[in-house]
Design a protein around this nucleic acid. Sequence first.
DNA 1: AAACGCGTCAACCGCATTCGA
DNA 2: ATCGAATGCGGTTGACGCGTT
Length: 407
Amino acid sequence: MGRIPCCEKENVKRGQWTPEEDNKLASYIAQHGTRNWRLIPKNAGLQRCGKSCRLRWTNYLRPDLKHGQFSETEEHIIVKFHSVLGNRWSLIAAQLPGRTDNDVKNYWNTKLKKKLSGMGIDPVTHKPSSHRMWGRGLGIMFALPFSYFLRKGYITLRLGVQLSGLFALGAGQGLIGWWMVKSGLEEPPSEYSQPRVSPYRLAAHLTSAFAIYCGLFWTALSVVMPEPPAESLAWVRGAAKVKKLALPVSLIVGITTISGAFVAGNDAGRAFNTFPKMGDTWIPDNIFEMKPLLRNFFENTATVQLDHRLLATTTLIAIGTMWWFTRKLDIHPAVKALIGSTVGMTAVQVTLGVLTLLSYVPVSLGSAHQAGALTLLTLMLLLNHTLRRPSPSLLKSLPQVAKSNFS
DNA sequence: AAACGCGTCAACCGCATTCGA
DNA sequence: ATCGAATGCGGTTGACGCGTT
């Protein structure tokens, strides 16, 4: 099926127009106007098809065309009309004297689409994108029941303060999110460097999300379980011992999670995709290459990733150690189960992390690794919550040793 | 240094609509 | 009023320049 492009003529030139051709076409049109595009190339002595000439004229040579950058006003007009007209480029271009449909279409596809989605607006529907809507929705989902329960008198002063604090954190989270995408829009500091979301702000957004989650989970646990499970004084003493280990271990888990947020912020998982070595060496030689030494820990891909590897390993060892030293203690079986779960979850999480790295951070594995971090944090919270010291009144009522319904 | 990746933009292609004999 | 040619339109392509590996 040999399809003839647009005109039957074999000897038509295609591709970029030369200045000579432009001159021929422009001067011909200046004399004769644009009556019949089919005849124009013949009469003007051009080896082009009429369609090509028309395109060249309307999109480039026409004297009433504007050529420079789009102004801010023009940009607003495009966005506004696109939101009601959709991809009706010629209609939109009609609102902008001196611009063609092709110009507008190109500008939309190359610049405006990205700009809008960067501002959290979906370029197809012109509505705020789902992530933001979820954020706002969550605010309402929190506030409505809160005011209801408050009126009903279910909320104690202490709980009210806690919940208000969490709500404020949530609002702050929205602000950080806005501040974050804003950084992706600002002009890059130098001409060569892609504008992108600041690693600090992304890390802050992520860390804050984890913090809010932890706060919510802890608060919820405290409402559901005002007293820790404690059936004997022996178990209470055991819990106190475990707690000495569990607290620092939780701290390490928390720090590792934050370090993971910086890995995400710097896209640091897209380099050194080998394990256990980083490339050919154990420690890359440029880890202290940036000027203020401290900056390396937050912005240097190699250092950030190395940190996370070290911290993750430390976490694994720490949790293993906690399990080892508590395995023979006389403690509540729930605590034992929890410690076992943390060991298992840490192993899963480390494996996931290594897999994610080795396969160049596919979204699925990256998300799974993030979810794993959340799960591990949850387990640590559960553990610490379970290990709280019972209230004095409960302590008084406890027997020395638990009634052994199992050994 | 060569290959590669990426953004930009002019140009192309095929279909839809309008025009004019 | 009708039918083929001309024109309009929007999605898509690909050449080019530039920076990175």
